[in-house]
Nucleic acid binder design. Structure first.
Length: 573
RNA sequence: GUCCCUGUGGCGCAACUUGGAUAGCGCGGCAGCCCCCUAAGCUGUAGGUUGCAGGUUCAAAUCCUGCCAGGGACGCCA
Protein backbone atom coordinates (compact mmCIF):
# COMPACT_ATOMS: atom_id res chain seq x y z
CA UNK A 1 0.00 0.00 0.00
CA UNK A 2 2.85 2.33 0.80
CA UNK A 3 4.74 1.50 -2.35
CA UNK A 4 2.07 3.02 -4.55
CA UNK A 5 1.92 6.28 -2.63
CA UNK A 6 5.67 6.64 -2.45
CA UNK A 7 6.00 5.90 -6.15
CA UNK A 8 3.45 8.60 -6.82
CA UNK A 9 5.32 11.11 -4.71
CA UNK A 10 8.54 10.34 -6.51
CA UNK A 11 6.92 10.39 -9.92
CA UNK A 12 5.48 13.83 -9.28
CA UNK A 13 8.82 15.12 -8.12
CA UNK A 14 10.66 13.77 -11.13
CA UNK A 15 8.14 14.70 -13.76
CA UNK A 16 9.69 15.12 -17.16
CA UNK A 17 12.75 13.05 -16.37
CA UNK A 18 11.44 10.12 -18.31
CA UNK A 19 10.73 7.81 -15.42
CA UNK A 20 7.24 6.48 -14.93
CA UNK A 21 5.41 5.61 -11.76
CA UNK A 22 5.46 1.96 -12.78
CA UNK A 23 9.21 1.81 -13.17
CA UNK A 24 9.66 3.58 -9.84
CA UNK A 25 7.41 1.00 -8.27
CA UNK A 26 9.68 -1.72 -9.58
CA UNK A 27 12.78 -0.04 -8.21
CA UNK A 28 11.43 0.50 -4.70
CA UNK A 29 12.84 -1.94 -2.22
CA UNK A 30 13.07 -2.85 1.40
CA UNK A 31 16.34 -1.67 2.92
CA UNK A 32 18.65 -4.41 4.10
CA UNK A 33 18.62 -3.12 7.65
CA UNK A 34 15.64 -1.55 9.35
CA UNK A 35 17.68 1.36 10.78
CA UNK A 36 18.01 2.59 7.23
CA UNK A 37 14.30 3.04 6.75
CA UNK A 38 11.15 1.23 5.75
CA UNK A 39 11.31 1.75 2.01
CA UNK A 40 14.11 2.85 -0.25
CA UNK A 41 14.49 4.27 -3.71
CA UNK A 42 17.87 3.65 -5.34
CA UNK A 43 18.98 6.54 -7.56
CA UNK A 44 21.67 4.80 -9.59
CA UNK A 45 19.58 4.45 -12.69
CA UNK A 46 18.87 8.21 -12.61
CA UNK A 47 22.55 8.88 -12.16
CA UNK A 48 23.21 7.18 -15.43
CA UNK A 49 20.52 9.15 -17.24
CA UNK A 50 21.41 12.57 -15.91
CA UNK A 51 25.14 11.90 -15.54
CA UNK A 52 25.13 13.06 -11.98
CA UNK A 53 26.44 11.53 -8.79
CA UNK A 54 23.71 9.25 -7.34
CA UNK A 55 24.40 10.49 -3.82
CA UNK A 56 23.76 14.03 -4.96
CA UNK A 57 20.54 13.13 -6.71
CA UNK A 58 19.31 11.28 -3.66
CA UNK A 59 20.13 14.23 -1.45
CA UNK A 60 18.27 16.67 -3.68
CA UNK A 61 15.26 14.41 -3.94
CA UNK A 62 15.11 13.85 -0.20
CA UNK A 63 15.29 17.58 0.47
CA UNK A 64 12.47 18.38 -1.91
CA UNK A 65 10.29 15.50 -0.79
CA UNK A 66 10.70 16.34 2.86
CA UNK A 67 8.87 19.58 2.29
CA UNK A 68 5.73 17.87 1.05
CA UNK A 69 5.67 14.56 2.83
CA UNK A 70 2.27 13.29 4.00
CA UNK A 71 1.62 12.57 7.65
CA UNK A 72 2.09 8.81 7.46
CA UNK A 73 5.70 9.26 6.42
CA UNK A 74 7.77 10.48 9.31
CA UNK A 75 11.15 11.03 7.74
CA UNK A 76 12.88 11.01 4.38
CA UNK A 77 16.64 11.05 4.09
CA UNK A 78 19.41 10.27 1.66
CA UNK A 79 22.17 7.75 2.26
CA UNK A 80 24.72 6.61 -0.31
CA UNK A 81 22.53 7.17 -3.31
CA UNK A 82 19.34 5.91 -1.75
CA UNK A 83 16.32 7.94 -0.75
CA UNK A 84 15.08 6.29 2.42
CA UNK A 85 11.54 6.64 3.66
CA UNK A 86 10.52 6.10 7.26
CA UNK A 87 6.89 5.33 7.88
CA UNK A 88 5.00 6.78 10.74
CA UNK A 89 5.04 3.68 12.93
CA UNK A 90 2.26 4.83 15.19
CA UNK A 91 -0.13 5.15 12.26
CA UNK A 92 0.83 1.71 10.99
CA UNK A 93 0.37 0.29 14.45
CA UNK A 94 -3.03 1.91 14.67
CA UNK A 95 -4.08 0.37 11.36
CA UNK A 96 -2.73 -3.05 12.17
CA UNK A 97 -4.29 -3.19 15.60
CA UNK A 98 -7.65 -2.21 14.18
CA UNK A 99 -7.49 -4.89 11.49
CA UNK A 100 -6.36 -7.47 13.98
CA UNK A 101 -9.17 -6.74 16.38
CA UNK A 102 -11.65 -6.97 13.52
CA UNK A 103 -10.28 -9.97 11.68
CA UNK A 104 -8.73 -12.04 14.49
CA UNK A 105 -8.11 -15.58 13.21
CA UNK A 106 -8.68 -14.30 9.68
CA UNK A 107 -5.95 -11.68 9.86
CA UNK A 108 -3.46 -12.34 7.10
CA UNK A 109 -5.91 -14.25 4.93
CA UNK A 110 -6.38 -13.38 1.29
CA UNK A 111 -8.85 -13.62 -1.53
CA UNK A 112 -6.68 -14.82 -4.38
CA UNK A 113 -8.29 -18.23 -4.22
CA UNK A 114 -11.86 -17.10 -4.23
CA UNK A 115 -14.06 -19.36 -6.35
CA UNK A 116 -11.11 -21.61 -7.09
CA UNK A 117 -10.70 -25.21 -6.16
CA UNK A 118 -7.43 -26.88 -5.42
CA UNK A 119 -6.83 -30.58 -4.83
CA UNK A 120 -3.74 -31.73 -2.97
CA UNK A 121 -2.62 -35.34 -3.10
CA UNK A 122 -0.32 -36.06 -0.17
CA UNK A 123 0.92 -38.54 2.42
CA UNK A 124 0.03 -41.72 0.48
CA UNK A 125 1.61 -44.44 2.62
CA UNK A 126 1.77 -48.05 1.50
CA UNK A 127 -0.69 -50.50 2.98
CA UNK A 128 1.05 -53.21 4.95
CA UNK A 129 4.11 -51.15 5.70
CA UNK A 130 4.55 -48.81 8.62
CA UNK A 131 4.97 -45.11 8.01
CA UNK A 132 8.59 -44.16 8.23
CA UNK A 133 10.31 -40.83 8.61
CA UNK A 134 10.26 -40.33 4.82
CA UNK A 135 6.46 -40.23 4.72
CA UNK A 136 6.31 -37.48 7.24
CA UNK A 137 7.52 -34.89 4.79
CA UNK A 138 4.72 -35.44 2.30
CA UNK A 139 2.20 -35.55 5.13
CA UNK A 140 3.33 -32.41 6.92
CA UNK A 141 4.11 -30.46 3.76
CA UNK A 142 0.81 -31.37 2.12
CA UNK A 143 -1.15 -30.54 5.24
CA UNK A 144 0.53 -27.15 5.58
CA UNK A 145 -0.03 -26.33 1.89
CA UNK A 146 -3.67 -27.21 2.35
CA UNK A 147 -3.93 -24.77 5.25
CA UNK A 148 -2.06 -22.06 3.34
CA UNK A 149 -4.35 -22.31 0.31
CA UNK A 150 -7.40 -22.46 2.49
CA UNK A 151 -6.22 -19.20 4.06
CA UNK A 152 -6.04 -17.62 0.60
CA UNK A 153 -9.68 -18.45 0.10
CA UNK A 154 -9.31 -21.55 -2.07
CA UNK A 155 -11.76 -24.38 -1.81
CA UNK A 156 -9.30 -27.11 -0.80
CA UNK A 157 -9.55 -30.89 -1.00
CA UNK A 158 -6.89 -33.09 0.55
CA UNK A 159 -6.58 -36.59 -0.84
CA UNK A 160 -4.74 -39.49 0.72
CA UNK A 161 -3.95 -41.95 -2.05
CA UNK A 162 -3.01 -45.21 -0.39
CA UNK A 163 -0.73 -47.81 -1.94
CA UNK A 164 -3.19 -50.63 -1.47
CA UNK A 165 -2.16 -52.75 -4.43
CA UNK A 166 1.08 -53.97 -5.96
CA UNK A 167 3.70 -56.59 -5.35
CA UNK A 168 4.13 -55.60 -1.71
CA UNK A 169 0.52 -56.63 -1.13
CA UNK A 170 1.20 -60.05 -2.67
CA UNK A 171 4.16 -60.46 -0.34
CA UNK A 172 2.16 -59.36 2.63
CA UNK A 173 -0.60 -61.86 1.92
CA UNK A 174 1.84 -64.74 1.63
CA UNK A 175 3.51 -63.80 4.91
CA UNK A 176 0.14 -63.32 6.59
CA UNK A 177 -1.01 -66.80 5.65
CA UNK A 178 2.21 -68.46 6.75
CA UNK A 179 3.40 -66.72 9.88
CA UNK A 180 0.70 -64.53 11.39
CA UNK A 181 0.65 -64.30 15.18
CA UNK A 182 -2.95 -63.37 15.91
CA UNK A 183 -2.27 -62.22 19.45
CA UNK A 184 0.53 -59.96 18.33
CA UNK A 185 -1.68 -58.51 15.61
CA UNK A 186 -4.22 -57.60 18.23
CA UNK A 187 -1.70 -56.06 20.64
CA UNK A 188 0.45 -54.21 18.22
CA UNK A 189 -0.84 -54.48 14.65
CA UNK A 190 1.70 -52.22 13.01
CA UNK A 191 4.67 -54.03 14.51
CA UNK A 192 3.25 -57.43 13.62
CA UNK A 193 2.73 -56.47 9.98
CA UNK A 194 6.25 -55.15 9.83
CA UNK A 195 7.60 -58.35 11.37
CA UNK A 196 5.81 -60.39 8.72
CA UNK A 197 7.11 -58.16 5.99
CA UNK A 198 10.70 -58.27 7.13
CA UNK A 199 10.50 -62.04 7.46
CA UNK A 200 9.35 -62.25 3.86
CA UNK A 201 12.20 -60.06 2.71
CA UNK A 202 14.65 -62.30 4.57
CA UNK A 203 13.28 -65.30 2.68
CA UNK A 204 13.69 -63.44 -0.58
CA UNK A 205 17.15 -62.43 0.59
CA UNK A 206 16.56 -58.77 -0.18
CA UNK A 207 16.64 -55.75 2.04
CA UNK A 208 13.45 -54.26 3.31
CA UNK A 209 12.56 -51.15 1.36
CA UNK A 210 9.82 -48.88 2.46
CA UNK A 211 9.00 -47.25 -0.86
CA UNK A 212 9.17 -49.80 -3.63
CA UNK A 213 9.56 -53.46 -4.38
CA UNK A 214 12.34 -55.28 -6.03
CA UNK A 215 10.86 -57.72 -8.47
CA UNK A 216 13.24 -60.67 -8.43
CA UNK A 217 13.23 -62.96 -11.42
CA UNK A 218 12.67 -66.65 -10.71
CA UNK A 219 12.85 -66.20 -6.99
CA UNK A 220 10.68 -68.80 -5.30
CA UNK A 221 9.26 -66.31 -2.83
CA UNK A 222 8.76 -63.46 -5.27
CA UNK A 223 6.83 -65.86 -7.48
CA UNK A 224 4.59 -66.81 -4.58
CA UNK A 225 3.81 -63.13 -4.06
CA UNK A 226 3.06 -62.63 -7.75
CA UNK A 227 0.71 -65.59 -7.65
CA UNK A 228 -1.17 -64.10 -4.70
CA UNK A 229 -1.44 -60.81 -6.50
CA UNK A 230 -2.89 -62.60 -9.53
CA UNK A 231 -5.41 -64.41 -7.32
CA UNK A 232 -6.36 -61.08 -5.82
CA UNK A 233 -6.97 -59.51 -9.23
CA UNK A 234 -9.11 -62.53 -10.15
CA UNK A 235 -11.20 -61.85 -7.08
CA UNK A 236 -10.31 -64.98 -5.10
CA UNK A 237 -12.46 -64.88 -1.98
CA UNK A 238 -9.98 -65.92 0.70
CA UNK A 239 -7.19 -63.75 -0.69
CA UNK A 240 -9.52 -60.78 -0.90
CA UNK A 241 -10.54 -61.27 2.71
CA UNK A 242 -6.95 -61.25 3.90
CA UNK A 243 -6.28 -58.17 1.75
CA UNK A 244 -9.17 -56.34 3.35
CA UNK A 245 -7.98 -57.33 6.79
CA UNK A 246 -4.49 -56.04 6.08
CA UNK A 247 -5.93 -52.78 4.78
CA UNK A 248 -8.10 -52.40 7.85
CA UNK A 249 -5.24 -52.98 10.27
CA UNK A 250 -2.88 -50.74 8.33
CA UNK A 251 -5.35 -47.90 8.19
CA UNK A 252 -5.82 -48.12 11.93
CA UNK A 253 -2.10 -47.66 12.35
CA UNK A 254 -2.06 -44.69 9.97
CA UNK A 255 -5.00 -43.09 11.69
CA UNK A 256 -3.20 -43.16 15.01
CA UNK A 257 -0.37 -41.21 13.46
CA UNK A 258 -2.65 -38.76 11.66
CA UNK A 259 -4.37 -38.15 14.96
CA UNK A 260 -1.10 -37.36 16.70
CA UNK A 261 -0.06 -35.15 13.80
CA UNK A 262 -3.49 -33.51 13.60
CA UNK A 263 -3.71 -34.14 9.88
CA UNK A 264 -6.92 -34.97 8.09
CA UNK A 265 -8.13 -35.58 4.55
CA UNK A 266 -11.29 -34.93 2.58
CA UNK A 267 -10.88 -38.15 0.67
CA UNK A 268 -9.02 -41.38 1.35
CA UNK A 269 -8.81 -43.78 -1.57
CA UNK A 270 -6.67 -46.68 -2.65
CA UNK A 271 -4.83 -46.93 -5.92
CA UNK A 272 -6.62 -50.19 -6.66
CA UNK A 273 -9.84 -48.27 -7.18
CA UNK A 274 -8.56 -46.73 -10.39
CA UNK A 275 -7.09 -49.71 -12.24
CA UNK A 276 -10.20 -50.31 -14.31
CA UNK A 277 -10.71 -46.66 -15.17
CA UNK A 278 -7.07 -46.40 -16.17
CA UNK A 279 -7.34 -49.45 -18.40
CA UNK A 280 -10.43 -48.03 -20.12
CA UNK A 281 -8.66 -44.78 -20.87
CA UNK A 282 -5.66 -46.65 -22.23
CA UNK A 283 -7.88 -48.83 -24.41
CA UNK A 284 -9.45 -45.70 -25.82
CA UNK A 285 -6.07 -44.09 -26.48
CA UNK A 286 -4.99 -47.28 -28.22
CA UNK A 287 -8.06 -47.18 -30.40
CA UNK A 288 -7.32 -43.59 -31.35
CA UNK A 289 -3.75 -44.46 -32.14
CA UNK A 290 -2.39 -42.23 -29.40
CA UNK A 291 -0.96 -45.12 -27.39
CA UNK A 292 1.12 -47.85 -28.98
CA UNK A 293 1.05 -51.62 -28.72
CA UNK A 294 4.19 -53.73 -28.20
CA UNK A 295 4.36 -57.11 -29.94
CA UNK A 296 3.94 -58.92 -26.62
CA UNK A 297 0.82 -56.96 -25.73
CA UNK A 298 2.29 -54.24 -23.49
CA UNK A 299 1.06 -50.70 -24.14
CA UNK A 300 3.24 -47.62 -24.10
CA UNK A 301 3.20 -43.90 -24.83
CA UNK A 302 5.90 -42.00 -26.66
CA UNK A 303 6.97 -38.40 -26.24
CA UNK A 304 9.04 -35.83 -28.06
CA UNK A 305 11.47 -35.07 -25.28
CA UNK A 306 10.81 -37.67 -22.62
CA UNK A 307 11.61 -41.38 -22.52
CA UNK A 308 8.77 -43.68 -23.53
CA UNK A 309 6.54 -44.96 -20.79
CA UNK A 310 4.81 -48.33 -20.48
CA UNK A 311 1.27 -47.83 -19.27
CA UNK A 312 0.05 -51.42 -19.27
CA UNK A 313 1.99 -54.65 -18.72
CA UNK A 314 2.15 -57.39 -21.33
CA UNK A 315 0.06 -59.62 -19.05
CA UNK A 316 -2.62 -56.94 -19.10
CA UNK A 317 -2.28 -55.91 -15.46
CA UNK A 318 -2.20 -52.32 -14.29
CA UNK A 319 0.92 -50.58 -13.11
CA UNK A 320 1.41 -47.46 -11.00
CA UNK A 321 0.82 -45.07 -13.89
CA UNK A 322 -2.26 -46.93 -15.08
CA UNK A 323 -3.90 -46.09 -11.78
CA UNK A 324 -2.56 -42.54 -11.78
CA UNK A 325 -4.14 -41.95 -15.20
CA UNK A 326 -7.46 -43.29 -13.97
CA UNK A 327 -7.27 -41.34 -10.72
CA UNK A 328 -6.43 -38.03 -12.40
CA UNK A 329 -9.33 -38.28 -14.84
CA UNK A 330 -11.76 -39.39 -12.16
CA UNK A 331 -10.72 -36.60 -9.83
CA UNK A 332 -11.13 -33.99 -12.50
CA UNK A 333 -14.58 -35.31 -13.27
CA UNK A 334 -15.45 -35.27 -9.58
CA UNK A 335 -13.91 -31.97 -8.48
CA UNK A 336 -13.41 -29.85 -11.62
CA UNK A 337 -10.38 -28.43 -9.83
CA UNK A 338 -8.48 -25.35 -10.94
CA UNK A 339 -5.31 -26.99 -9.79
CA UNK A 340 -4.17 -30.34 -8.49
CA UNK A 341 -0.89 -30.74 -6.68
CA UNK A 342 0.94 -33.99 -6.05
CA UNK A 343 3.23 -33.75 -3.05
CA UNK A 344 5.80 -36.51 -3.32
CA UNK A 345 9.48 -37.22 -3.21
CA UNK A 346 11.28 -35.41 -6.04
CA UNK A 347 12.53 -38.72 -7.40
CA UNK A 348 9.12 -39.25 -8.95
CA UNK A 349 9.50 -36.17 -11.09
CA UNK A 350 9.98 -38.06 -14.34
CA UNK A 351 6.95 -40.17 -13.63
CA UNK A 352 4.78 -37.10 -13.21
CA UNK A 353 6.22 -35.31 -16.21
CA UNK A 354 5.33 -38.34 -18.26
CA UNK A 355 1.89 -38.58 -16.71
CA UNK A 356 1.09 -34.92 -17.42
CA UNK A 357 2.47 -35.05 -20.96
CA UNK A 358 0.58 -38.21 -21.74
CA UNK A 359 -2.72 -36.87 -20.49
CA UNK A 360 -2.26 -33.77 -22.59
CA UNK A 361 -1.48 -35.73 -25.72
CA UNK A 362 -4.46 -37.93 -25.14
CA UNK A 363 -6.72 -34.90 -25.13
CA UNK A 364 -7.17 -34.24 -21.44
CA UNK A 365 -6.67 -30.49 -21.35
CA UNK A 366 -6.92 -30.34 -17.60
CA UNK A 367 -3.39 -31.71 -17.47
CA UNK A 368 -2.23 -28.07 -17.53
CA UNK A 369 -3.71 -27.76 -14.07
CA UNK A 370 -1.57 -30.54 -12.64
CA UNK A 371 1.55 -29.80 -10.69
CA UNK A 372 4.13 -31.95 -8.97
CA UNK A 373 5.84 -30.56 -5.90
CA UNK A 374 8.88 -32.73 -5.42
CA UNK A 375 10.66 -32.46 -2.12
CA UNK A 376 14.15 -33.56 -1.15
CA UNK A 377 15.23 -36.58 0.78
CA UNK A 378 15.47 -36.82 4.53
CA UNK A 379 19.00 -37.98 5.30
CA UNK A 380 19.89 -39.74 8.50
CA UNK A 381 23.66 -39.58 8.41
CA UNK A 382 25.16 -42.19 10.67
CA UNK A 383 22.18 -42.36 12.97
CA UNK A 384 20.22 -45.11 11.26
CA UNK A 385 21.39 -47.77 13.65
CA UNK A 386 19.73 -46.23 16.65
CA UNK A 387 16.26 -47.57 15.95
CA UNK A 388 14.97 -50.92 16.98
CA UNK A 389 14.15 -52.15 13.51
CA UNK A 390 17.59 -51.62 12.08
CA UNK A 391 17.63 -49.59 8.93
CA UNK A 392 14.27 -47.96 9.11
CA UNK A 393 13.38 -44.99 11.22
CA UNK A 394 9.74 -45.49 12.06
CA UNK A 395 7.60 -42.43 12.32
CA UNK A 396 6.12 -43.78 15.52
CA UNK A 397 9.54 -44.02 17.10
CA UNK A 398 10.45 -40.50 16.11
CA UNK A 399 7.24 -39.10 17.52
CA UNK A 400 7.52 -41.16 20.67
CA UNK A 401 11.10 -40.17 21.32
CA UNK A 402 10.39 -36.49 20.76
CA UNK A 403 7.36 -36.53 23.02
CA UNK A 404 9.34 -38.24 25.77
CA UNK A 405 11.94 -35.53 25.45
CA UNK A 406 9.23 -32.89 25.70
CA UNK A 407 7.99 -34.50 28.90
CA UNK A 408 11.48 -34.41 30.36
CA UNK A 409 11.82 -30.74 29.49
CA UNK A 410 8.51 -29.91 31.09
CA UNK A 411 9.51 -31.75 34.24
CA UNK A 412 12.93 -30.18 34.34
CA UNK A 413 11.52 -26.70 33.99
CA UNK A 414 8.61 -27.40 36.30
CA UNK A 415 6.24 -25.84 33.77
CA UNK A 416 2.99 -26.79 32.15
CA UNK A 417 2.31 -27.68 28.56
CA UNK A 418 1.18 -30.62 26.50
CA UNK A 419 4.19 -32.80 25.69
CA UNK A 420 2.59 -34.16 22.52
CA UNK A 421 1.92 -30.67 21.16
CA UNK A 422 5.49 -29.63 21.88
CA UNK A 423 7.09 -32.76 20.48
CA UNK A 424 4.97 -32.75 17.34
CA UNK A 425 5.56 -29.03 16.95
CA UNK A 426 9.30 -29.61 17.08
CA UNK A 427 9.17 -32.27 14.39
CA UNK A 428 6.85 -30.33 12.11
CA UNK A 429 8.87 -27.16 12.36
CA UNK A 430 12.18 -28.97 11.80
CA UNK A 431 10.79 -30.25 8.51
CA UNK A 432 8.77 -27.26 7.35
CA UNK A 433 11.48 -24.68 7.90
CA UNK A 434 13.41 -26.15 4.98
CA UNK A 435 12.57 -25.14 1.44
CA UNK A 436 10.79 -28.14 -0.17
CA UNK A 437 13.46 -28.73 -2.81
CA UNK A 438 16.17 -29.11 -0.20
CA UNK A 439 17.22 -32.32 1.43
CA UNK A 440 16.72 -32.41 5.16
CA UNK A 441 19.52 -33.66 7.32
CA UNK A 442 17.85 -35.37 10.19
CA UNK A 443 19.73 -35.66 13.42
CA UNK A 444 18.37 -36.60 16.79
CA UNK A 445 20.50 -33.93 18.37
CA UNK A 446 18.79 -31.26 16.34
CA UNK A 447 15.32 -32.74 16.40
CA UNK A 448 15.45 -32.97 20.17
CA UNK A 449 16.94 -29.55 20.74
CA UNK A 450 14.08 -27.29 21.74
CA UNK A 451 16.16 -24.14 21.87
CA UNK A 452 16.90 -21.55 19.23
CA UNK A 453 15.39 -21.95 15.78
CA UNK A 454 12.87 -24.62 16.73
CA UNK A 455 9.15 -25.31 16.98
CA UNK A 456 9.09 -25.02 20.78
CA UNK A 457 10.76 -21.60 20.51
CA UNK A 458 7.77 -20.37 18.52
CA UNK A 459 5.36 -21.99 20.94
CA UNK A 460 7.22 -20.48 23.86
CA UNK A 461 6.99 -17.01 22.36
CA UNK A 462 3.26 -17.47 21.91
CA UNK A 463 2.93 -18.71 25.49
CA UNK A 464 4.82 -15.67 26.77
CA UNK A 465 2.47 -13.33 24.93
CA UNK A 466 -0.49 -15.21 26.40
CA UNK A 467 1.04 -15.06 29.83
CA UNK A 468 1.39 -11.29 29.73
CA UNK A 469 -2.17 -10.90 28.48
CA UNK A 470 -3.52 -13.21 31.18
CA UNK A 471 -2.32 -10.76 33.80
CA UNK A 472 -4.50 -7.96 32.53
CA UNK A 473 -7.90 -7.44 31.01
CA UNK A 474 -7.15 -6.70 27.40
CA UNK A 475 -10.80 -5.93 26.71
CA UNK A 476 -10.56 -2.90 28.94
CA UNK A 477 -7.69 -1.49 26.95
CA UNK A 478 -8.69 1.26 24.57
CA UNK A 479 -7.91 -0.03 21.05
CA UNK A 480 -7.31 3.54 20.00
CA UNK A 481 -4.48 3.97 22.46
CA UNK A 482 -1.79 6.48 21.66
CA UNK A 483 0.76 4.56 19.60
CA UNK A 484 3.02 7.55 19.12
CA UNK A 485 4.67 6.71 22.44
CA UNK A 486 6.14 3.60 20.83
CA UNK A 487 9.44 5.07 19.72
CA UNK A 488 11.78 2.33 20.84
CA UNK A 489 13.44 0.60 17.83
CA UNK A 490 12.37 -2.78 19.21
CA UNK A 491 8.78 -1.64 19.23
CA UNK A 492 9.02 -0.26 15.74
CA UNK A 493 10.61 -3.43 14.43
CA UNK A 494 7.73 -5.40 15.90
CA UNK A 495 5.11 -3.17 14.31
CA UNK A 496 6.80 -3.50 10.98
CA UNK A 497 7.03 -7.28 11.00
CA UNK A 498 3.41 -7.59 12.13
CA UNK A 499 2.34 -5.54 9.15
CA UNK A 500 4.10 -7.92 6.79
CA UNK A 501 2.08 -11.00 7.67
CA UNK A 502 -0.65 -10.82 4.97
CA UNK A 503 1.91 -10.38 2.22
CA UNK A 504 3.94 -13.28 3.60
CA UNK A 505 0.95 -15.61 3.48
CA UNK A 506 0.26 -14.70 -0.11
CA UNK A 507 3.86 -15.27 -1.01
CA UNK A 508 3.93 -18.68 0.62
CA UNK A 509 0.89 -19.77 -1.40
CA UNK A 510 2.30 -18.48 -4.67
CA UNK A 511 5.56 -20.27 -4.13
CA UNK A 512 4.11 -23.44 -2.62
CA UNK A 513 6.48 -22.90 0.27
CA UNK A 514 5.42 -23.34 3.88
CA UNK A 515 9.00 -22.56 4.83
CA UNK A 516 8.23 -18.91 4.09
CA UNK A 517 5.65 -18.99 6.86
CA UNK A 518 8.01 -20.91 9.12
CA UNK A 519 10.74 -18.30 8.66
CA UNK A 520 8.29 -15.51 9.25
CA UNK A 521 7.01 -17.08 12.45
CA UNK A 522 10.56 -17.47 13.67
CA UNK A 523 11.47 -13.88 12.87
CA UNK A 524 8.33 -12.63 14.54
CA UNK A 525 9.13 -14.66 17.66
CA UNK A 526 12.69 -13.41 17.69
CA UNK A 527 11.56 -9.81 17.29
CA UNK A 528 8.98 -10.27 20.03
CA UNK A 529 11.50 -11.80 22.44
CA UNK A 530 13.84 -8.89 21.78
CA UNK A 531 10.98 -6.52 22.41
CA UNK A 532 9.78 -7.79 25.75
CA UNK A 533 13.32 -8.18 26.99
CA UNK A 534 13.88 -4.48 26.38
CA UNK A 535 10.42 -3.07 27.02
CA UNK A 536 8.50 -3.98 30.14
CA UNK A 537 4.81 -4.22 29.37
CA UNK A 538 2.84 -4.58 32.57
CA UNK A 539 5.11 -2.22 34.45
CA UNK A 540 5.27 0.34 31.69
CA UNK A 541 4.06 3.86 32.24
CA UNK A 542 2.41 5.80 29.47
CA UNK A 543 3.30 3.09 26.96
CA UNK A 544 1.41 0.35 28.78
CA UNK A 545 -1.78 0.37 26.73
CA UNK A 546 -0.06 0.55 23.38
CA UNK A 547 2.40 -2.19 24.36
CA UNK A 548 -0.38 -4.44 25.58
CA UNK A 549 -2.09 -4.08 22.24
CA UNK A 550 1.15 -4.94 20.52
CA UNK A 551 1.45 -8.09 22.61
CA UNK A 552 -2.12 -8.99 21.74
CA UNK A 553 -1.27 -8.50 18.09
CA UNK A 554 1.77 -10.76 18.35
CA UNK A 555 -0.28 -13.42 20.07
CA UNK A 556 -2.84 -13.38 17.28
CA UNK A 557 -0.42 -13.30 14.36
CA UNK A 558 1.78 -16.00 15.84
CA UNK A 559 -1.28 -18.13 16.42
CA UNK A 560 -2.39 -17.66 12.82
CA UNK A 561 1.08 -18.44 11.48
CA UNK A 562 1.44 -21.56 13.62
CA UNK A 563 -1.96 -22.69 12.45
CA UNK A 564 -0.77 -22.50 8.85
CA UNK A 565 2.08 -24.80 9.79
CA UNK A 566 -0.22 -27.17 11.62
CA UNK A 567 1.62 -26.45 14.88
CA UNK A 568 -0.37 -26.04 18.07
CA UNK A 569 -0.24 -22.55 19.56
CA UNK A 570 0.34 -23.36 23.23
CA UNK A 571 -0.93 -20.91 25.85
CA UNK A 572 1.25 -21.99 28.70
CA UNK A 573 4.53 -23.87 28.74
C1' G B 1 25.54 -40.43 -21.75
C1' U B 2 20.83 -37.27 -21.25
C1' C B 3 17.82 -34.70 -17.86
C1' C B 4 16.45 -32.78 -12.70
C1' C B 5 17.82 -30.89 -7.79
C1' U B 6 21.45 -29.04 -4.29
C1' G B 7 26.28 -26.33 -3.09
C1' U B 8 26.34 -19.87 1.73
C1' G B 9 31.46 -19.83 8.75
C1' G B 10 32.76 -26.56 12.26
C1' C B 11 27.28 -28.12 11.78
C1' G B 12 21.98 -26.74 10.37
C1' C B 13 19.46 -22.89 7.72
C1' A B 14 17.81 -17.59 5.59
C1' A B 15 18.25 -14.01 1.71
C1' C B 16 17.92 -16.10 -4.99
C1' U B 17 11.08 -15.83 -7.55
C1' U B 18 11.54 -9.52 -8.29
C1' G B 19 19.94 -7.94 -8.82
C1' G B 20 20.94 -2.85 -4.65
C1' A B 21 23.63 -0.48 0.98
C1' U B 22 27.95 -3.69 6.09
C1' A B 23 25.45 -11.61 3.42
C1' G B 24 21.16 -12.47 8.36
C1' C B 25 19.89 -16.36 12.02
C1' G B 26 20.27 -20.85 14.98
C1' C B 27 23.35 -24.98 17.01
C1' G B 28 28.10 -25.82 18.93
C1' G B 29 32.66 -22.66 21.36
C1' C B 30 34.01 -18.66 24.67
C1' A B 31 32.25 -14.53 28.20
C1' G B 32 27.94 -12.63 30.70
C1' C B 33 22.29 -11.74 32.48
C1' C B 34 17.04 -14.72 36.84
C1' C B 35 15.62 -8.00 42.60
C1' C B 36 12.34 -7.52 37.53
C1' C B 37 5.68 -9.73 32.79
C1' U B 38 8.10 -17.93 32.32
C1' A B 39 16.14 -18.57 31.38
C1' A B 40 12.35 -23.40 25.92
C1' G B 41 14.56 -16.41 26.96
C1' C B 42 18.27 -12.30 26.33
C1' U B 43 23.33 -9.78 25.64
C1' G B 44 28.43 -9.81 24.01
C1' U B 45 32.44 -12.41 21.28
C1' A B 46 35.20 -15.47 17.73
C1' G B 47 34.00 -17.80 13.01
C1' G B 48 32.51 -16.14 5.45
C1' U B 49 37.10 -14.47 -0.98
C1' U B 50 28.34 -17.29 -0.92
C1' G B 51 31.82 -24.57 -4.92
C1' C B 52 35.24 -22.59 -9.16
C1' A B 53 35.94 -19.54 -13.65
C1' G B 54 34.10 -16.23 -17.02
C1' G B 55 30.02 -12.90 -18.73
C1' U B 56 25.86 -9.14 -18.32
C1' U B 57 25.31 -4.60 -15.15
C1' C B 58 26.58 1.70 -12.30
C1' A B 59 25.67 -2.74 -8.85
C1' A B 60 25.78 -10.20 -8.62
C1' A B 61 24.82 -14.96 -3.14
C1' U B 62 20.78 -13.48 -6.65
C1' C B 63 20.64 -13.28 -13.87
C1' C B 64 23.53 -16.01 -18.20
C1' U B 65 27.43 -19.61 -19.88
C1' G B 66 31.02 -23.27 -18.79
C1' C B 67 33.24 -26.33 -15.24
C1' C B 68 33.69 -29.00 -10.32
C1' A B 69 31.41 -31.65 -6.20
C1' G B 70 27.15 -34.27 -3.87
C1' G B 71 22.35 -36.46 -4.58
C1' G B 72 18.64 -38.26 -7.90
C1' A B 73 15.85 -39.86 -12.35
C1' C B 74 16.15 -42.32 -16.99
C1' G B 75 12.06 -50.24 -15.21
C1' C B 76 6.24 -53.99 -18.23
C1' C B 77 8.87 -50.97 -9.41
C1' A B 78 5.88 -47.79 -6.86
Amino acid sequence: MFEGRIAELLAKEMKGKGISKESILKLLEKPSRSELGDMAFPCFILAKKSRKNPAEIAKELAEKLNKKKPEDISKINAVKGYVNFFFNASLIAKGIIKRLLDEKDEFGSGKTGRNKKIVIDFSGPNIGKPMHIGHIRSTILGDSLLRIFDFQGYNVKGINYLGDIGLHIGKMIVAYELWLDKEALKDNPVDELLRLYIKFCDKEKIEYNEDFEEELQDNEWTNKAKEKLRLLELGDKKTTEIWHEIIRVSKEGFNEIYKILNVSFHEITGQSLFSEKGKQIIAQALKEGKAKLESDGAVYAEFQDLPKKYVLRSNGTASYITQDIGAAVERYRKYKFDRMIYVTDFRQEMHFRQLFALLKEWGYDFSDKLLHIGFGTINFGGEIMETRKGKIILLNDVLEKTIVKAKEEIKKRKTKGNAADIGVGAIKYAILKNAPAKDVNFSWEQALNFEGDSGPYLQYSHARACSILRKTDINKVNPKADFSVLDNPKEQALIKILSEFPETCKNASEQFSPNIIANYAYNLSKTFNDFYEACPVLKAGKEKEARLLLVAAVRQVLKNALNLLGIEAIEEM
